[in-house]
Structures are given as structure tokens and as C-alpha cells.
Design a protein around this nucleic acid. Structure first.
Lengths: 237, 237
DNA sequence: TTCGACCATAGAACGAGGTTCGATAATTGC
DNA sequence: GCAATTATCGAACCTCGTTCTATGGTCGAA
């Protein structure tokens, strides 16, 4: 029953001692795999091949696949964080919140695999927590109770995650291969919906025409603005 | 290149001809496994063992694991649908929307494994689409454009999914074994958060006290009411 | 009654994936 | 220089989803 072996990530790496693979290289390759072919493409063997090493080596930098995914997410969230930080500073804190939420959403559009796990662990440290903090700082400028602030940030994150969750799971295998584009994919929805019984599905019939040329981002923005309108009302601004 | 073999699910079962296992039995056992130990517990072998059959038999009723999960989800969503239908009919459509959203959320609290896949496929038929329709029918009573209606429903579903997503993934393996209860689990959060630098994390410090005794449902309700307030504003009601 | 056609079941076998383990080189500290 | 630590590698193991083939069982037709 020995304790876990020491890993480079566990201690401050004092000077690089000619490591052919750093944790950054591992994470970068992992993100590349995810970007290229989605989450199922991230296997330890594929990662090892891409890095030109053996599977076992990866376990030196990472405790397992879950840890690998967590770190890869945190890795890209670092970029998102700096992107977010560069766009704050408006007069209106709610406008700032909006911009930040949109930035988050755009990041998930670029990397759909983020959607499923985005903001999974707002727990200990990491860029996930830092993003949470950055959002929350805007609420400090609003006339709210701490609890209201907390709920406001949770709600905004909820809207982002809830809408982004739609994105990260649909493409059966079309978008990657380009056999079918997204418009045609959505077209099948509208056809099916139009064929439904009008008596039993009045709502679907009411909206089915809008669904043609449907835009995920527009849908997200509408939901976000609904929530922000409620927040603005609550803050009495 | 032969077509798919006929399956009982593909045709109306005309009278039961002494089938020891029905599709309902398979789905029921699958849901039981999911309820007992979460998604990783649902393996075809475990399911076969529980049913007292072989793995191959399951493929008679289901085309694969994805199909199994989809049907299991649709199975429980059937119950959710009737629960939702029993609670509508108030004067205020937005109040009805609220009640329905809460019912959905409660269903996910009861079955955290639903969270990750909830409303995954609002596509063709199924109870998922029916729930979508039921929510939408309330918006027909509001003075909105079809597009606004669509966005409103999407936003509400987004809030439910976004907040429920938090639920379905936390318990590393504590809640199932009962080694650690949820309160103590959350207590670790507050400790870690309190230890953060106050200069760098002013927001987290502002809200950390509220996080003790934190209630997921309360958090969800606050976010939902924010969105509904925005909707009420938009509908001019 | 007998014989096929179809329903339904069962489990061995395959391939892919995550993880473990021991061997081994490379580097560092003394 | 020598031992301890650092880092690497891939074979082997186990689990899981899936496929395939074999085998009863039921029922209608000859």
C-alpha cells in the first residue's frame, strides 16, 4: 500500500531537465485530438502515438483519463479566461456579464467537446473557479445580497451550459466527414415536426417555421437576455 | 448486406406469445441499475445477469447501448410527462411554466443520471418532444411571436438542464456508499474557498458564507425566476 | 404428424479501450 | 563513480460493447 508516486505536476518544476515531453505537450496533443475528431478520438493509445511515446509514459504526467480530460479542459479554459479578461470594463456591469457569457459560449462553439464538461468542477482552484470569480466580480457592482449574487452567477452559467449542451452532442458523424451539413441536418427536424398531428402538437406547429434557418447563437442570446433582464429588474438598475 | 432483423419493438406486438422478457422488463432493469449505482453501472453484462439471460438476448430488444440508454430515458420521461400534465391549468401561463420546470428539475434530482442526457433528443417523437410541446403550449397563451415563444421554451429548458448538470456528476463515490454525506462534501468547498486570497477572489469571499447550507433547488429556483421575470417583462403581462 | 419458417435465447469470441506492472534507460545528488 | 530518483516504454490484464453462430421453441401448412 504505497502512496502515489511523485509526479512533475505535484511539485514546482525547478528548471527544465531536458524532458522530451512536458505536461504542456501532453495537454496540447490531447486538445489537438479533441479538436480534430471530438471526445471519442481521445484515447491513450492515440495520444501516445501522436506524442511518439508509449502509453505508460502518459501516466507519469497524469493520473488517468479523467485527470487528463480535466487538465485538458483547464488548459483551454486558461485561454478563455484571458479572452474574457480582455473584454471587461464597461460602465454597466450587466453589459460586462453579457459580454463574458457570450465569450464563454463562443469558446464552446469553437470546441463542442467542451460543452459536456464545461464548468464541471468549479471546486478547487483551476481556471474554472477563476472564471466563476470573474463573473461574480461584476455582480459586486450591483446592489444585491451575497445570496442574490451567487444565484445570479449560477443562473448565467446555467444558461451558458444549458444552451451549449445542445451543441456538443448532435453530430452523429456527419460534420466531421462533411457528408451532411448542419442545415440539411436541421432540415430533417422540420420535416418530421411538420408531419406531426396539428391537434396534439399545436406549439411545435407554431414554431416549426422559425426553426428553419435556426441559429444556436441567436437562441442562446435570447435566453441570456431573458435572464439578464430579470437580473436587471432585481438589481433595480 | 441484409437489412436489419425484425425486432419486437419494430412492430406492434399482437398478443404476448409467452415472452419471458419484454422490452419493458429490459428497460425496467436498466433503470433500476442506473438508479442504484449511476450510469457506469449500466453494462450489458450486468443487465443480462440481472435479467437472468445472456448478453446477446438484449440485442434482440435493443440495437445497442445507445439505443438502450435512449429508451430507458424515454421510459422514465413518460412518468415525468404524466406528472407534468397533472399540474397544469393555472390562470397564469408563466406560473404553469414554473411548475412544469420545477417538476422536471425534481425528476432529475431523483435520478441524477438523467441530468447528463436530459432532453438530449428533442428530435423525433418520444416523450422528450412531448414535454417540449407541453411547455410550449403555455407560451401560446402569451402575447409573443413564434420566435419569442421558441426562445422562451429553449431558455427554460436551458436553465433546467444547466442547473441539473451540476447534480448528475458530483458524487465521486461517496453518496452511493454513504461514507460522506453531501453536507460534509460541500463543506470541503467552503474550506477551500475561504483559504483563497481575498484580494484575488473578492467575489468568492463575498458569497462563501452563503454556500454553507447551500441548496441546489433554491439555486435553481432563483435562476428560473430570473428568467421567468424576464419573460414576464417581454410578454407585457 | 412432420417439416420448415420464424421467434427468441444463449454465450463464446473479437477488438478496443483504460490501467497496472516490471524492466530499463537517463539524470541527478553526494 | 555510485546510488537514488526521474522518466520512459510496452507487454499483459481486465472490462466493455458488439458480432456471430448455434440452439431450442412455437406455429402454420402440407
Amino acid at each position: 500500500m504505497t502512496g502515489p508516486r511523485p509526479r512533475p505536476a505535484d511539485r514546482p518544476s525547478r528548471g527544465r531537465q531536458r524532458a522530451s515531453h512536458s505536461i504542456e505537450a501532453v495537454l496540447g496533443a490531447a486538445v489537438a485530438l479533441l479538436d480534430e475528431a471530438g471526445e471519442p478520438a481521445l484515447t491513450l493509445r492515440a495520444l501516445a502515438t501522436r506524442l511518439g511515446t508509449g502509453v505508460g509514459s502518459i501516466y507519469w504526467y497524469v493520473s488517468g483519463k479523467d485527470d487528463l480530460l480535466d487538465r485538458a479542459i483547464d488548459h483551454v479554459l486558461g485561454g478563455v479566461l484571458t479572452a474574457v479578461e480582455g473584454r471587461t470594463g464597461s460602465d454597466d456591469p450587466i453589459d460586462d456579464l453579457r459580454v463574458m457569457a457570450v465569450t464563454l459560449f463562443d469558446a464552446i462553439v469553437d470546441r463542442p467537446w467542451l460543452g459536456a464538461h464545461f464548468m464541471r468542477r468549479t471546486d478547487v482552484q483551476g481556471n474554472s473557479l477563476r472564471l466563476f470569480e470573474k463573473l461574480g466580480q461584476q455582480t459586486l457592482r450591483l446592489d444585491l445580497t451575497p445570496l442574490q449574487r451567487f444565484h445570479a452567477v449560477s443562473a448565467i452559467v446555467g444558461v451558458v451550459v444549458g444552451n451549449a449542451a445542445d451543441l456538443g452532442q448532435e453530430p452523429p458523424q456527419e460534420v466531421f466527414d462533411g457528408f451532411v451539413d448542419r442545415d440539411e441536418f436541421l432540415g430533417r427536424y422540420t420535416e418530421t415536426w411538420r408531419a406531426l398531428d396539428a391537434e396534439e402538437f399545436p406549439f411545435v406547429h407554431d414554431i416549426v417555421e422559425e426553426f428553419d434557418g435556426h441559429d444556436d447563437k441567436e437562441q442562446f442570446l435570447a435566453g441570456l437576455d431573458l435572464t439578464l433582464a430579470g437580473l436587471r429588474l432585481q438589481a433595480g438598475a
